[in-house]
């Protein structure tokens, strides 16, 4: 009973919040509703018994990714409304809905056949975090390490891209100005 109430409450709220994210003209509204939707999605994970995934969702998505977005927001003018030229939104809605439906059908087709079987079954009486840890550090050790290296690469890339010449503007190329001055002098 509680599960039913929680499921419908969460799903309605998540869909509403994500619609605000996608439709809103204001970046701040979009970001806030996206963060709230992600918190509620972690609620889904807790209902589904994936406790560790829910905690990771809260820490990584709501904690880290949203903090990154809000830091990046300092570089952009976030209070200004976004003006966009939208061409025939009805067509976009129909196309988006149809292609999403096709994708979902494609990926859901193997589930409804009986070809699926549990590779790493959950154990009774063992906590979800323990179960996840055992599988993650035995069967998925190599992908886990690769993901760690990927995060390191992404961190270095982010620092280099965002932090390059942080103190002066990238748009004003001073060496180009010098060259122009030299050319004027030669004339």
């Amino acid at each position: 009973m509680y599960e039913v109430v929680a499921f419908y409450l969460f799903s309605v709220l998540i869909i509403g919040l994500f619609l605000v994210t996608v439709m809103s003209k204001n970046v701040l509204y979009a970001m806030t509703s996206l963060a709230a939707g992600m918190v509620l999605i972690s609620g889904f994970f807790f209902i589904l018994g994936a406790d560790f995934l829910g905690v990771v969702q809260l820490i990584v998505y709501v904690g880290a990714i949203m903090a990154l977005y809000s830091f990046a927001m300092m570089f952009f003018d976030a209070t200004k409304d976004i003006k966009e030229k939208n061409t025939s939104s009805a067509l976009v809605f129909v196309l988006g809905g149809l292609s999403a439906l096709v994708l979902v059908l494609m990926f859901a087709a193997p589930i409804h056949s009986d070809a699926i079987q549990a590779l790493y079954p959950m154990h009774e009486g063992v906590g979800n975090a323990q179960d996840v840890g055992i599988v993650l550090f035995t069967k998925y050790l190599v992908p886990f390490e690769v993901a760690a290296v990927m995060l390191l690469v992404a961190m270095i890339a982010g620092i280099i891209l965002a932090g390059k010449k942080m103190d002066d503007s990238l748009t004003e190329d001073l060496s180009a100005d010098d060259e122009i001055l030299v050319q004027k002098d030669e004339k």
Binding site: V60, Y61, A64, I65, L68, Y69, A72, M150, L151, V153, A154, M155, A157, G158, I159, I160, L161, A162
Partner: peptide, 10 residues
């Protein structure tokens, strides 16, 4: 997603 956001925002 986390690494995509880091690189993408940069």
């Amino acid at each position: 997603a986390a690494s995509e956001v880091a690189v993408g925002l940069g």
